[in-house]
Simulated assay, not measured.
Amino acid sequence: MDQESLNERETRAWVRFQHMRIEINVVLARMLTRDFGLTEADFVILLRLSNSPECRLRARDMAAALQWDRSRLSRQVSRMETRGTVMRAPSEGDARGYDVVLTDAGRAAFQAAWPSYVSGIRHCFADVLSPHQLDALTDIAETIDRHFIAQHWPGGLNDPAKADGARTTAAGLELRPAEDSLESAS
């Protein structure tokens, strides 16, 4: 098979996947901004903090979980601090780092937006698909996630830190914790 091009089936699947992902994200992002004054970035941080013990996370852990570089997270946290939805606090045991902490205003903003966000997911995604399609899509996503973790996550086969020949197998890696899921945010 030609490694420099996709066949018709692969191209069609990839294009439809990208189109679907972008369309759903655009609808949800517009709703968050229009109805709640939140950006997507605001919302994912509020979601992650809402699911965290004591509604706080080390900045470096949040950056890693979101797959953002630390400077992107720092700029986003600064914007959110200005609006009063989060604050920085010293990290216990890490004098150089800081924790991102959900404020009462941030909690209120998240709680106000969450029902509409879920409704938007239902409207644009969950209610459009049959139970069989949802199960198939979940299986597809989990398969790709396992590949990603094994091949592209720190410690995976393609991690530059593993260039010394050490290998991590997919069997030794687990999916990300359930707290990453939307269902645990409610």
Results as ranks from 00 to 15, higher is better:
2 D>Q: 08
4 E>N: 13
5 S>F: 11
6 L>W: 01
6 L>C: 05
7 N>K: 03
9 R>E: 13
10 E>Q: 15
11 T>W: 11
11 T>C: 10
13 A>S: 14
16 R>I: 06
23 E>N: 14
25 N>W: 13
29 A>P: 07
30 R>L: 14
31 M>S: 05
32 L>Y: 02
32 L>E: 03
32 L>H: 01
34 R>Q: 11
35 D>I: 13
36 F>V: 02
37 G>L: 11
38 L>Q: 06
38 L>N: 08
40 E>T: 06
40 E>I: 06
43 F>T: 07
44 V>S: 08
44 V>G: 01
45 I>W: 03
47 L>V: 06
50 S>R: 08
54 E>S: 04
55 C>N: 15
57 L>V: 11
59 A>N: 10
60 R>M: 02
60 R>N: 05
62 M>N: 10
62 M>V: 12
65 A>R: 09
68 W>A: 08
69 D>L: 12
69 D>I: 10
71 S>W: 14
71 S>A: 13
73 L>P: 06
73 L>A: 05
74 S>R: 07
75 R>Y: 10
76 Q>A: 15
76 Q>C: 15
79 R>M: 09
80 M>V: 03
81 E>P: 06
81 E>Q: 14
82 T>C: 04
86 V>M: 04
86 V>G: 04
86 V>W: 02
88 R>M: 01
88 R>E: 00
88 R>A: 01
89 A>C: 07
89 A>T: 10
89 A>V: 09
90 P>C: 01
91 S>Q: 03
93 G>K: 03
94 D>S: 05
95 A>W: 09
96 R>E: 14
96 R>F: 13
98 Y>D: 03
103 T>L: 06
106 G>K: 00
107 R>C: 04
108 A>W: 10
109 A>M: 09
111 Q>C: 15
111 Q>G: 15
112 A>E: 15
114 W>E: 14
115 P>F: 01
121 I>D: 03
122 R>A: 14
123 H>A: 01
123 H>T: 06
124 C>S: 12
124 C>G: 04
125 F>H: 07
133 Q>L: 12
133 Q>I: 09
136 A>D: 15
136 A>V: 15
140 I>L: 14
141 A>R: 07
143 T>F: 11
145 D>K: 12
146 R>C: 05
149 I>Y: 02
150 A>S: 04
150 A>E: 05
151 Q>D: 04
151 Q>P: 00
152 H>M: 02
152 H>V: 02
153 W>D: 00
154 P>G: 00
155 G>I: 01
157 L>N: 01
158 N>L: 15
158 N>P: 02
160 P>E: 07
161 A>E: 10
162 K>C: 13
162 K>H: 13
162 K>D: 06
163 A>K: 10
164 D>P: 00
174 E>D: 10
175 L>S: 09
179 E>F: 02
182 L>K: 07
184 S>F: 10
184 S>C: 12
184 S>Y: 12
185 A>G: 12
185 A>N: 05
